[in-house]
Design a protein around this nucleic acid. Structure first.
Lengths: 219, 219
DNA sequence: GCCCGATTAGAACAAATGTTCTAATTAATC
DNA sequence: GATTAATTAGAACATTTGTTCTAATCGGGC
């Protein structure tokens, strides 16, 4: 097998899995190489051998989880062509939350992004942007269409679109932060239906908000 | 002068100022005692002498900035008695953003809270709660009133209130995160009028969102 | 002017942690 | 089965960092 691709069930994959868990939980800095290797049942030299150093491991984790996350939960999840802006927004929010709020492997990506946005490690600036930029541009299109649709007579202003975008992402990300910061009493890990319910509420809230912005105008 | 209160212009205050800057910028863990002392022109032993250890310094910074933040920007900033729920919400959001988005001293508190929510240091659980809990309860009252007012016939459900609360806080916090993560091109530090404009947009968005939630119902 | 507590300076210490190095081991190839 | 490259183990190293310790300094009060 090609050593460059031999991720399957080898030390490399075990390291990525253990590191993903650790980085998502503690952040880049606080997670330690020794702890990761212990959980991956690997030697510390393995991370040097396979990933060059801790940053390389971090980048590999990010890239790996990103690939799977967008494959499993694309932005237009379950959408058929010709969907309305509302339907696209709903799909986007639900997809975002499913990608981030779950447990275990594919949820790392959302957690890593959440941590990077709040406390940038400084080692992902380029690779992180490849994950964030497309998402942001996709969302921008949705918001623009929604604003235009709500108030066709008025031209959509860029800074209004930006703020609405931020409002949406902010709502989604805070679901992560809050649940990590103070888990609510009597609330276990969220299953997909619960996540979908939260997404639905954020969707309705956002549509109402965008409508208010569009019709009310903004100085 | 009473040594326990001698904060004025002494080593203790210089340390708190330098530490606040460092903690707000790098987080508890990444900020180093030596760097703080260097910037405060103090010896490393001073932090041990005055605050016992790094955690004590962190707690002191948090408490100090908290006291000033709530004094300078109370939740009902510029509000007269008998204000409507809308006005209270507007004041809350504007106050929150002024407290967090500014530059320099009083803005630390918002940054520290933002960092703590995203990546809890684990050393502030109790003292941070004394800052967050009252704010959250105050906001809960506003949201409850708004929902009730929009749809008087229906009883306000707790989980709906909670999600709306989270939506509001999420929007506000993300203003911090995003601007730290990727400063927008051609955008300098925000001055109070700009902050107020952002607050106004979030306010309108939120009122529209809450109205949509209240009238549309939620499963 | 001296004394005593408060405060500071700066070296010293100990622990944690990322990285590197050498030897051992494993797996594939002939 | 021998050889060679890939991989791993684990000690060793260097750096960073929080903390502590001792001596020096400063500031009032008698």
């Amino acid at each position: 097998m090609n050593p460059g691709q031999a991720w399957d069930e080898g030390t490399k994959k075990r390291l990525i899995m253990a590191a993903g868990e650790a980085f998502a939980q503690h952040g880049f800095r606080a997670a330690t190489v020794r702890e990761i290797c212990r959980r991956a049942k690997a030697s510390v030299s393995a991370v040097n051998y396979h990933f060059r150093d801790k940053e390389g491991l971090y980048a590999a984790v990010f890239e790996y989880s990103h690939r799977w996350a967008v494959e499993k939960y694309p932005h237009d999840l379950g959408l058929e062509v010709g969907a309305t802006p509302e339907e696209r927004l709903r799909a986007f929010i639900r997809s975002f939350l499913l990608r981030s709020l779950g447990d275990g492997f594919p949820a790392w990506h959302g957690r890593l992004i959440a941590l990077e946005t709040a406390a940038p490690s400084g080692v992902l600036s380029k690779v992180a942007e490849t994950a964030i930029r497309p998402m942001d541009e996709y969302l921008e299109g949705i918001v623009r269409d929604l604003l235009q649709q709500e108030n066709p007579s008025q031209e959509v202003e860029d800074h209004v679109v930006r703020l609405c975008r931020m409002n949406i992402i902010g709502q989604c990300l805070f679901q992560l932060h809050a649940r990590q910061f103070m888990p609510f009493p009597g609330e276990k890990k969220l299953d997909p239906p619960q996540i979908a319910a939260i997404a639905e509420q954020i969707f309705r809230f956002t549509v109402g908000g965008i409508r208010a912005i569009a019709t009310g105008g903004l100085s």
